[in-house]
Design a protein around this nucleic acid. Structure first.
Lengths: 218, 218
DNA sequence: CCTTGCTTTTGAACAGATTCAAAAGTTCAG
DNA sequence: CTGAACTTTTGAATCTGTTCAAAAGCAAGG
């Protein structure tokens, strides 16, 4: 029984939860509602998910798997780093569009790095590393060459940048998230220019200092 | 009765809450405990504070008022911008030291800018503006001259930087928060150097771009 | 077929934040 | 002094996330 029926129940609960969250909102949906909608007892929801927020994490992880073809497609479209990054980020926007508000629940849990749901914590390492890896790939085939001393760190930094943009987008109430678009336009440009400039010989000392800062974060 | 006895009750509740939070932790303390320790009924706590988290905000605001002399003292000690900023930041550390863990409760509420407790929201504007103002003062009498086009924005940016450092410090489990110290050392240096370099004529174009980014955030 | 040792499911019980209607206290105009 | 209007206080009730002990389902060895 292990993998088959149980996995089905598990999915049924997640699906019911996501539907209710979308229809009524996260706070307005109770775990009792979720269980009832999935046709199971309240306790069953907790047998599969440790908390209400973990349902949101499950959604996040699920979209992340479904995103792989979208990411690959985005990278195939252009060699330019800014377009590549934009492609990755907009793929996420598309996936999250229906559940934007939902993700604030994850944010709240996630600010504390000790929380199991934190994007910076141990448990989420696999998802995180995969995401970082996509930025490594975005860099690899691109028009930007990186100095050796920072090359290993940049994918992680770009991932961090992408997390920042997503944070903005999630909490952005401007119509159509226009504000986030403006910020994305302005900062993406800056980031890419900065990376291109990083190789210029006379910026060596500054780069050294930046590396020192990065090391302090470990 | 308005201001006198009521204000007393209000303070009694906050004092009781802080004592319990410190002794047992935030999550381990119930609102019933708080009310009982303050010698009032449960409902009274909610008459004065909208939520358990709002007690933490009240603590934050209170320390902020008590900090004024500490801030002034810090600024009197040196003309160097890095020392001045370090003074402001360490004053906060000192004040928060006993209640470090407590502030994670505020963090969780605060990531959502729509939450009334968010440091970026409307309700917290007064505290925020006062804090920003301290960074304006730190700049004013310092050894750093700013280009006119960014001068108005820099205090806010420094405040943002200080919020970031505090965030790290709050969630930093390394012994004595050594990790935060290292990060502070490395980044403060970088920030100040960057501000000093901002005036160099050949950095004009880059500065223009940075200003454009700042404008996108409004 | 039983029995044993799992995994899954159940639903009642628990706990704690928050609400709320009613009571008590206070102020002040008349 | 008195009553209307307001502020403060009360404590029980509500709501909801989460736990838990017991029941039900299932697989496989004997």
């Amino acid at each position: 029984m292990k993998t088959v029926k149980a996995e089905e129940t598990r999915n049924r609960i997640l699906d019911a939860a996501l539907r209710l969250f979308r229809e009524r909102g996260f706070a307005e949906t109770t775990m009792r509602d979720v269980a009832a909608a999935a046709g199971v007892a309240t306790g069953a929801a907790y047998y599969y998910y440790r908390s209400k927020e973990e349902l949101v994490l499950a959604f996040y992880v699920r979209t992340d798997q479904e995103a792989r073809p979208l990411f690959a497609e985005a990278l195939a479209k252009s060699k330019k780093l800014d377009k590549r990054m934009r492609g990755l980020i907009e793929a996420k926007f598309t996936q999250f569009a229906e559940h934007r508000a939902l993700l604030t629940a994850l944010l709240k849990a996630g600010v504390d790095p000790r929380d199991p749901l934190s994007p910076f914590g141990d448990e989420t390492r696999p998802v995180r590393e995969e995401n970082i890896h996509w930025y490594a790939r975005a860099l690899e085939g691109s028009d930007v060459k990186l100095p050796a001393d920072i090359a290993a760190d940049v994918p992680r930094l770009l991932w961090l940048y992408h997390m920042g943009i997503i944070y903005f987008w999630i909490t952005d109430d401007s119509p159509g998230q226009a504000r986030t678009r403006r910020i994305l336009d302005a900062t993406l440009d800056l980031v890419v220019q900065l990376l291109k400039a990083a190789s210029l010989p006379f910026l060596g000392p500054l780069r050294k200092k930046a590396v020192k800062v990065l090391r302090a974060f470990e």
